[in-house]
Design a protein around this nucleic acid. Structure first.
Lengths: 260, 260
DNA sequence: CATACGCTATGACCTAAGGTAAGAGTCAAG
DNA sequence: CTTGACTCTTACCTTAGGTCATAGCGTATG
């Protein structure tokens, strides 16, 4: 049998050309699937066009997840019934696909029940505020502190439902308590005591409670947000800008006095 | 930790109850995935309800094609983020499914081209005639010379495509050449020369070229067939009964003169 | 009590398709 | 002559167990 062309490749070259590893070629040689046409005096493998083409065939069938042994039969045994082999292989692949299908369903269901039982949905996360408001707030917040928001959501989403509900309830109670103290000085010890609680809760919402960084600037910034965005201090559709300013001043003072 | 119930199972029992092999339980013990609650003095493994339940969990996750090592983490590491793990596993399964999808497509295409190409399709086998004609010929021919037809088909099916194409092309050319000679005598030397070629080709199609038997009767019979079934000499839907008779006479003469 | 049968234990080797590493030899360029 | 890139072989490692081989344990029966 004559050579198709004079081109010769060393292992590395053939490997790169066909996208396999050198080890793979060694292995194919070892199992007799693809032997180099020539060995140099030093024992180096030299592949020619023939082998190149055969490798292409091998890789094609390998792509179809056909075991190497069978590929060998396909390529070497002239009596091999390729058609029958492919048909039955197709059936096997079909079964695998069906199995994957049910697997995906199962995993989906599992994820779903997992989320419903122990985790919070997006809506639950922002429960208490009307939806559009939550959306608007979230977008703004993401604009200004993308990292923090994501972190916070991640953290809260992972909380167990009862824990989250407790946190939310506590926070609400605190919020209304603060709302009833706007006649006092924002810097007064009474107010500052509650602000300290507010700070703790906020850090829990942010998921940064265990961080060393006190986040003085972020916390003061949140106070600014309470003023800039009135929706934040809305109650039953009625704006309370004064409460926003009260909170901002109290939080700024707290940040300067306790967090620096 | 208290026992949930007093039930104890030996390896074989647990294996049967949960549908795994004894070796599997040994293995899970070995890698620390599922250890028996108790070892008897003789070293026998004794599993309790706890382990039974854990095994159920393991098998559930194993069904999802999750590696055993990861299952261990899921079950033992309280900080393990199961949800994230399942999500990413789902993505992996999705990719596998996509791959299977394209694989199935590829294998389908391969089977198709294989059917149309290397193995000769029925149409191709009798190409040169339209489909029903080939079918008709085949059925009649099988009725009359079952052995020969089967042999012919076997032979052609195994031929390499280029070889077959050449044969087919030659035959077509010969056929049209004969069609242009209907004004001559079927017994004329010019016609008989081409008929000799036609005979050779026919024997090749039949796969009987190397047969000792000259098949005089079969060949003359084929000529009769050309007449009996006009579709055989149809060109563009137009019947040419005269050409059929011409061929029959020429072939009969050839059979009598050269094959007896 | 001995024995036979059934269950169990451990250890070792095997699978597919290479990955990774070690130690040694080879080739071409500077 | 040395360096760096390449190559060789050998050998161990991976998953999730399967398949022996050899030996110990438990119990029902003669």
């Amino acid at each position: 049998m004559k050579q198709l062309s004079g081109a010769r490749y060393a292992v590395r070259q053939l490997a790169k050309l066909s996208g396999v590893s050198v080890r793979t070629l060694h292995y194919y040689d070892q199992i007799g699937l693809l032997k180099p046409g020539i060995r140099t005096a030093a024992g180096y493998r030299q592949y020619g066009e023939q082998e190149m083409l055969r490798l292409q065939q091998i890789l094609f069938y390998r792509e179809l997840d056909i075991p190497l042994k069978e590929i060998g039969d396909i390529l070497d045994d002239p009596d091999f019934d390729l058609l029958k082999a492919l048909e039955s292989h197709k059936i096997a692949l079909g079964r695998r696909q069906e199995r994957l299908q049910t697997l995906l369903k199962t995993i989906d269901k599992t994820i779903l029940t997992l989320k419903n039982n122990t985790m919070l949905s997006h809506e639950e996360l922002y429960e208490g505020m009307p939806k559009e408001q939550a959306e608007a707030w979230r977008e703004e917040a993401i604009d200004e502190w993308p990292k923090e928001v994501r972190r916070s959501e991640d953290h809260l989403r992972k909380m167990k439902k009862p824990d989250f509900n407790k946190l939310k309830g506590d926070f609400k109670a605190l919020w209304s308590q603060l709302g009833s103290m706007t006649d006092q000085e924002p810097t007064s010890p009474e107010v500052q005591e509650l602000i300290a609680l507010h700070y703790d809760f906020t850090r829990q919402f942010w998921g940064t409670a265990s961080l060393e960084d006190k986040q003085a600037k972020a916390y003061a910034g949140l106070g600014e947000l309470y003023v800039q965005d009135e929706r934040f201090t809305e109650v039953d559709g009625k704006a309370h800008p004064a409460f926003g300013r009260f909170m901002r001043d109290a939080m700024k003072h707290f940040a300067e006095a306790k967090l620096s």
